[in-house]
Design a protein around this nucleic acid. Structure first.
Length: 399
RNA sequence: GGUGAGUUAGUCAAGUGGCCAACGACGACGGACUGUAAAUCCGUUCCCUACGGGUUCGGUGGUUCAAAUCCACCACUCACCA
């Protein structure tokens, strides 16, 4: 049981510091039911979570399964500084009201994964505001500039002469101080957070609170392309709020190799179950598509429901495997006869009439399932189903 | 503050007076093949009811019959020095 728990906790992690401490905590839990705390920090900026974020959340859920109480920390104070990790753009400050709203929408999304009864939401402004000037000063005495510059991005910026605001040095210190205040047993975060996470350990030692948090880092999830990290700006993400049909189709569109990665980081199946699937695929007793479908179903059901996931699957089969038209599609209507290229443009199916002409030339345009080749075609009155490629559909009515 | 290099389509990156709507790579989109994909192969890739027209190569002016290409100024980025 302990072994199993440890394996699930270590699953997919990029690096663990203080593994023995985690083991100790788990042992105490299995022996005496003693609980412990796991901290994870989040930005108070408008949360629009995608699967990449849920990797961390699911790790937290695993911890909850094995006795942890989650300290879900919303960094409302530290957000005023802006985490220097990666980007250097200064953040705009959020009003208290906005932060409250964001926190609320966070919890709506987050509790699809986390057990609310074992989660405490905390805001770090609560204690940092009370720190005072002298408190802050004594915090800074625990560290020095040389060590601060060990941090990779600081180092690079320092060497290249890019400015580093003093406040940015304060950021990791405050994040670490959160761990002191919360007396966290474990903190988890992305690999890019290593420096900040270790700061928690350092400060807990400096403040002599009698423990040093273990640190577990999760890798960054690859996006749909399988190469770059999942992010909104790269448009290779699956949002947790997406429609079931889209969600299902997106998961199914990943490559077979990437599928195993997603299984490891996103599925709630146990490692041995996954191993069984993998063996099945390897010895050809299981079709990879089936395995991928199962993953798509699981993920879609998690954020919607079992039923919606099932119907998304049927819809997908209908449209892609059988080349039928989807049940739902956007509808448009026009008042008079319209040129086909213009209609496609107005229905947002192509970016320009030039593109529409090219698509027609290439046989990508279908009207009522029939390929068309006439670029000049006018749509007279009637109802049509327009299709661009395999995926884009629209119902058009011309009066 | 000084010196030098640079700024080209979604990104990277050629082009250094006319043959440039601009090589190439990636991406994206479409077609074939499939398991939906991936891989592979083929095609497309500024806009416009189009064998034609319009607008592009950091910005503004200039030289020229002709400029992404030459000149001037401005803006920004980077490197080295201080």
């Amino acid at each position: 049981m302990l072994e199993e728990a440890l394996r699930e906790i270590q699953r997919g992690s990029a690096e663990i510091i203080g593994n023995e401490e985690i083991e100790k905590l788990l042992r105490a839990y299995f022996k005496d039911g003693k609980t412990y705390t796991v901290k994870a920090g989040f930005d108070p900026t408008a949360p629009d979570l995608h699967l990449g974020h849920t990797v961390l959340l699911q790790k937290l859920a695993t911890f909850q399964k094995y006795g942890a109480t989650i300290q879900f920390l919303i960094g409302d104070f530290t957000a005023q500084i802006g985490d220097p990790t990666g980007k250097s753009a200064t953040r705009k400050t959020l009003s208290a009201l906005q932060i409250q709203e964001n926190a609320k929408s966070y919890s709506e999304q987050v509790f699809k994964i986390l057990d609310a009864s074992k989660t405490t939401i905390v805001f770090n402004s609560e204690w940092i505001n009370n720190l005072g000037a002298s408190g802050l000063l004594s915090l800074t005495t625990t560290f020095n500039v040389a060590r601060m510059l060990e941090r990779d991005d600081f180092d690079k910026r320092y060497k290249s002469g890019t400015s580093i605001a003093i406040s940015e040095f304060i950021y990791p210190l405050l994040q670490g101080y959160d761990s002191v205040h919360l007396k966290s047993d474990i903190e988890i975060g992305g690999t890019d957070q290593k420096f900040n996470l270790l700061m928690g350990r350092h400060l807990q030692r400096a403040y002599e609170i009698g423990k040093e948090q273990a640190v577990l880092m999760m890798p960054i999830l690859e996006g749909l392309d399988g190469v770059q990290k999942m992010s909104k700006s790269l448009n290779n993400y699956i949002g947790v709020a997406e429609e079931p049909n889209d969600m299902f189709a997106k998961v199914l569109s990943i490559s077979d190799t990437l599928m195993w990665r997603y299984y490891e980081l996103l599925s709630t199946k146990t490692l041995s179950e996954i191993e069984a699937l993998r063996e099945g695929v390897e010895n050809n007793s299981l079709h990879p598509k089936k395995v991928k479908e199962e993953l798509a179903l699981e993920i879609t059901a998690r954020f919607h429901s079992q039923e919606l996931a099932q119907s998304a699957r049927e819809e997908f089969e209908r449209v892609h495997a059988n080349n039928e038209i989807p049940a739902d599609m956007p509808e448009y209507s026009f008042d008079e006869a319209i040129w086909i290229a213009k209609a496609l443009l107005d229905c947002n199916m192509v970016p320009s009439t030039s593109q529409a002409r090219r698509d027609i030339k290439q046989g990508a345009i279908k009207i009522n399932q029939e390929k068309i080749s006439d670029e000049q075609l006018q749509l007279g009155s009637g109802e049509y189903i327009l299709q661009v490629g395999k995926r884009k559909f629209a119902k058009v009515k011309v009066n």
